[in-house]
């Protein structure tokens, strides 16, 4: 388990990185934290011709809040975002999701942009991005586009990012005051990869759910926004949550479902309403309101 040879570049900033990416061939890849890419390289499932190592690009590692948007630079470490008071204040669901992603040693290296760009079906942060309508900033030399998270993920480990492009930031909405959030997941192990997980954010007004955003990870090759459940829950009293969820016949709609060693697609279908109910309960509990 040793990687294949590659050309190595270490740009000093984003502009430098985008230039190198433009100059390299189609099989070049940006190297962020490497916590997903390097295992694939060691297993020789991935063999990039060149790596553009972003770890020296300080301008990709900033966290800013402006105009109702929390923008996290692609090279912000997962552990840093998880513990960042700015992130916790603006969009706590990001921090909650990252705390479930890997382990301290992988989060010290792993980055926010890296986990989004890698597009693992069980990546928690992807679910948050889809639930909250985050935007992914993608840049190439001389060009920049912003893609809604819902359109970003195409398949397991596949996104709209083209050769010559890279993710440079993720833009999450700053959550309105009073928003409560939860990330709930289940897996074979007490703290391991999820079989399914739910990102949830909601607000209560007058004892009823006023606004709710939900997405599922792990059940499908890409995160699934649970629009039918959001609709069913909106306007419901807290005591009606379970029945409202149960009333949605097919919360996953026509999403392709994963079927693998961790569980069948039928199992994943069964987990979603259960985990959504839990996520809502956990979120609501944070308000100190009895469900």
């Amino acid at each position: 388990m040793k990687p294949k040879a590659f050309r190595y570049h270490r740009p000093a900033d984003k502009a430098d990185a985008l230039r190198m990416l433009a100059e390299e061939d189609e099989d070049a890849r940006p190297l962020a934290g490497g916590q997903s890419l390097v295992p694939l390289m060691n297993l020789r499932f991935a063999a990039p011709s060149a790596l553009i190592d972003l770890n020296a690009c300080a301008d990709l590692a900033t966290i800013t809040v402006a105009d109702g948007v929390l923008e996290i630079g692609a090279m912000v470490r997962q552990r840093e975002a998880e513990l960042s008071p700015v992130v916790i204040e603006a969009c706590p669901l990001v921090a909650e999701a990252l705390a479930l992603n890997g382990h301290p040693a992988t989060r010290h290296r792993g980055t926010v942009g890296g986990t989004i760009a890698h597009a693992d079906p069980v990546a928690e942060l992807s679910g948050v991005a889809v639930a909250l309508d985050a935007e992914i900033v993608i840049e190439r030399q001389g060009g920049r586009r912003t893609v809604p998270a819902a359109d970003f993920f195409l398949d397991a480990l596949t996104t709209v990012v083209e050769p010559g492009e890279m993710v440079t930031a993720v833009r999450f909405p700053v959550l309105a005051p009073g928003t409560v959030t939860a990330f709930v997941e289940t897996g074979m192990r007490g703290h391991g990869l999820a079989v399914a997980g739910i990102a949830a954010a909601l607000r209560i007004a007058g004892g009823r759910i006023d606004w709710v955003r939900l997405a599922a990870i792990g059940v499908s090759p890409v995160p699934v926004r649970l629009a039918a459940l959001e609709e069913a829950l909106t306007g419901r009293a807290l005591g009606e949550v379970e029945s409202a969820i149960a009333g949605v016949a097919d919360p996953l709609g026509d999403a392709d479902l994963l079927d693998n060693l961790e569980g069948s697609s039928a199992y994943r279908r069964e987990l979603v309403p259960t985990l959504v109910a839990r996520a809502v309960r956990v979120a609501v509990d944070k308000m100190g309101v009895a469900a």
Binding site: R189, H191, L261
Partner: peptide
Amino acid sequence: LLDYLLPSTCD
């Protein structure tokens, strides 16, 4: 080890 799961401290 992502497919063959070993118990960890949390199990």
